[in-house]
């Protein structure tokens, strides 16, 4: 069947086709970077998740110390610390940064010890991942329990750090813990008329 004038391949259409084709072939290359990042992130969570379950199932006495060690190596503490200050992040004095970060580690470890018995499963299963950007990956997992309790869904938000990752946030029962922490920390500062010292005082008391 002869081509009608509307079906003729003009130079412009040819160019459009070439661009579309090149985009089509380039697409897998573009998405391959986050995909690779996700695979590495999944492996990372499988490994760190296992370590956390071991600590959570261990003795209460040593739990806090062991968890703090894990946090020091695997948590993006400075990013969490700055994020937790929300709109007050400019109030963080340079001279008190290291104390603030250290207090956050202690605070989170204290919470972990309290909640650990309920979340101490015996196996972690990675169920998927998605890259928000090259530096921000979310890995989904399920924690299985030997007692037959229904599996617990846990999402891990990872921040790219060098060639590896650090944990920025964890979502349990639909609650992102860093977001929750930000709400609480900013409420302390707000109630004290923007005084960052009030937050430090609260954290030191824990």
């Amino acid at each position: 069947m002869p081509l009608s004038s509307s079906h003729r391949v003009s130079r412009r259409n040819l160019l459009k086709g070439a661009v579309a084709l090149s985009a089509l072939f380039a697409a897998p290359l573009i998405v391959s970077a986050p995909a690779a990042a996700s695979a590495a992130a999944e492996q990372y969570v499988a490994s760190i998740g296992k370590s956390i379950l071991v600590v959570a199932g261990g003795s209460q006495g040593q739990m806090s110390g062991k968890f703090r060690n894990l946090m020091a190596r695997h948590a993006a503490i400075s990013a969490i610390g700055v994020f937790s200050l929300g709109k007050y992040r400019s109030k963080l004095p340079g001279s008190q940064k290291s104390e603030y970060y250290s207090l956050i580690e202690k605070f989170v470890a204290g919470l972990f010890v309290k909640y650990a018995p309920q979340f101490a499963g015996n196996r972690i299963e990675i169920t998927g991942s998605k890259a928000r950007s090259a530096r921000d990956v979310i890995v989904s997992s399920k924690v299985h329990f030997a007692s037959g309790k229904a599996p617990l869904e846990v999402q891990w938000r990872l921040l790219k750090a060098g060639s590896g990752f650090k944990i920025f946030d964890v979502r349990v029962l639909g609650v992102w813990l860093a977001i929750q922490q930000r709400t609480e920390f900013t409420s302390v500062i707000k109630r004290n008329k923007g005084d960052f010292g009030a937050l430090l005082k609260f954290l030191r008391s824990k």
């Binding site: 309290k114 909640y115 609480e184 302390v188």
Partner: peptide
């Protein structure tokens, strides 16, 4: 246990519960 731990660790229980509810 969850509520006991939440109450103990919270700087403002009202704000904590409100945020947990929202999320």
């Amino acid at each position: 246990e969850t509520l006991d731990a939440t109450r103990e660790g919270s700087p403002d229980y009202y704000v904590t519960i409100k945020s947990l509810y929202r999320q």
